Amino acid sequence: MLMIHAAMDKILKIICCLLFISMVGVASWQVIARYVLNSPSTVSEALLRFSLVWLSMLAIAYVTGQREHVSLTLLTDKLSGKWKIGCNFLMELLFIGFSAVVLIYGGMQATSNSMSQIYPMLNIPKGLLYLSLPVSGALIIIYCLNNCLLIYKNIFFVRSQAL
């Protein structure tokens, strides 16, 4: 299971870095085209919006897998032993439930409802934009199941120690 976790981490890092680099390139091109060439690019803004949504959703999945997401730890910091493990396990189960209902189910509904609509500037179905929701939801569930296994085995890796 740790090999799957590490492989997913590596793939998501590469995809997120490539998306970010391409976004910087497209944004730079947009500025050059608009202010230097006096011919604004019509596709760049739509491509940036599309890339930003996918980058955000994939980055959320990655951060969830690293257990570095924003959370209120006021209570869990004061717990110890089985209570802390139980609370961490419950948090992972809540993430799984949220991902299954909101991201996967809701994302599939939004994707299927908008697949017939065309993104005007990119000439692709709008459903491809919403497809980022179920994809990230599935990745989050895989990460959370792996985290549940790690909690069960009681082998936590602190991010600073893992690097």
Rank of each mutant, 00 (worst) to 15 (best):
Q30I: 03
S112A: 11
I118D: 04
V26G: 08
D77Q: 07
W83F: 05
F156G: 09
N147C: 13
I14D: 09
F89R: 09
L131C: 09
S71W: 11
V43P: 01
R34K: 13
R34E: 13
I140S: 01
S56D: 00
W54A: 02
N123I: 03
S51E: 10
S56G: 15
K126S: 12
Y130Q: 03
I60W: 08
Q109Y: 05
L74W: 11
F50N: 05
L129Y: 08
G86W: 10
V43H: 14
N123Y: 12
F157D: 07
D77W: 04
V63L: 13
A27E: 00
S99M: 06
C87N: 04
P125W: 02
G107L: 04
N123L: 08
S136E: 04
L94S: 11
I85S: 14
L47F: 09
K153H: 10
I21N: 02
W29M: 08
M108I: 14
A27N: 06
I142T: 12
V158H: 14
V43T: 15
L52Y: 14
A33T: 00
Y35I: 03
Q161P: 00
S136R: 05
R49N: 07
M3L: 13
S114A: 09
F156K: 15
K84F: 07
V24E: 01
L129R: 01
V26R: 02
W54I: 06
L131F: 13
I124R: 06
I15M: 11
R49E: 08
T111E: 03
L103C: 02
K13G: 03
F89S: 10
S80Q: 13
I32R: 06
I118E: 10
L103D: 00
S41I: 10
R159E: 09
Y62Q: 11
C16N: 09
Q161M: 08
L75R: 04
P40Y: 07
I140K: 00
